[in-house]
Design a protein around this nucleic acid. Structure first.
Lengths: 183, 183
DNA sequence: TTCGATACCGAACTCATTGTTCAATATCAT
DNA sequence: ATGATATTGAACAATGAGTTCGGTATCGAA
């Protein structure tokens, strides 16, 4: 990829995350992004079809960073994973999210974030399907599978949201406890 | 209230709900609403400050209809309530929602519906606080109160969403079972 | 270093939408 | 009948999205 393209792309990503830390996604205009990124208007549209696509690309990068490590391809992460027992997949996730890399969390409790939430849920779905055995024993007889998966995901996001809205006072460990207690 | 005002207000409500059955809230423009309602532009803005306020007003009416009956002011509803035992508050709600009065449900699974969802949650919060005893026994020791309430509400909405997205094939009774089984 | 390709620039443009204003008109309640 | 008030619709300003295009700067390869 051309050096200029990489630079521009990164400048836009940086500007976007910077703006996201200050205001809601749907209040950010393309004009603001290109000002912050110091990039021509046409250039922006040469890179991203719309603001939604920009978000999508950003999510790809962020989720790749956060979720891919769950698949055991990273030694450091596998270490944590193996030390803390089965529930650590979620603990690990909570820890990652606590760091608030790239203001990803802002997107979780901001309004009109269905787009982001959709991508986030897709990633969680994969994770949950992989680790469904953690919960298998309890309730699967009485309710449909899809509802059960749906519920795990929505509970995870719900717990996470509550955590964020309450200024993340609790430790990731405590939140993980809560998460499993609730389920 | 002036007869003209009532007529106009109702025309706008009707147009709005009609449009909501066809497309998402944030894809509907004021222009479309006034065309469908056959009402002057200035008239619309004389009634509602913005599109968001229109939604708010509509929610007020709908929620008043659905939730107020839970408070026992309506004899027919109280009858149902008393017959079906404690869990019937939620059963009753599911039944009401199944009827899909005024396409309220469309709003639940449509994107960018934080506004609607906010009002809906506020109503649920009241209801849950009133009936928190239904769940009291189980888990309140291990997790904070606010998280617990938050979780009941988000589970209710989650279950409802799953129901809607799956074409509401199940009966309200079955969904109520699921809801309590999950919790 | 040169040179062709390509990325960037930015101003100007179209288009859609929002929300306001105002004077003319219609409808209301009494 | 009449004074008050609601409606109308066109015109207006403001904002933002997305496009176009000629000119400029940068790249990478020879």
């Amino acid at each position: 990829m051309d050096r200029r393209q990489k630079k521009t792309r990164q400048a836009i990503f940086n500007a976007f995350t910077e703006l996201l830390s200050k205001k809601d996604f749907d209040k950010i205009s393309v004009g603001e992004i290109i000002d912050e990124a110091d990039v021509g208007r046409a250039t922006f549209y040469a890179h991203f079809e719309t603001k939604d696509f920009l978000l999508k690309e950003l999510c790809k990068e962020l989720f790749c960073h956060i979720f891919d490590t769950e698949n055991g391809c990273n030694t450091e992460h596998r270490h944590i994973f193996e030390c803390d027992g089965e529930s650590s997949v979620f603990l690990h996730l909570f820890r990652h999210l606590q760091k608030n890399d790239n203001n990803i969390l802002k997107l979780l409790s901001s309004p009109n974030n269905e787009l982001f939430l959709g991508y986030f849920k897709d990633q969680l779905e994969i994770l949950v399907v992989d680790h469904i055995s953690l919960f298998e024993a309890k309730k699967r007889k009485t309710i449909p599978d899809s509802l059960f998966r749906h519920h795990i995901i929505s509970t995870f996001i719900g717990t996470l949201r509550w955590w964020i809205d309450n200024k993340m006072k609790e430790t990731p460990e405590r939140i993980t406890e809560y998460f499993f207690a609730i389920l």
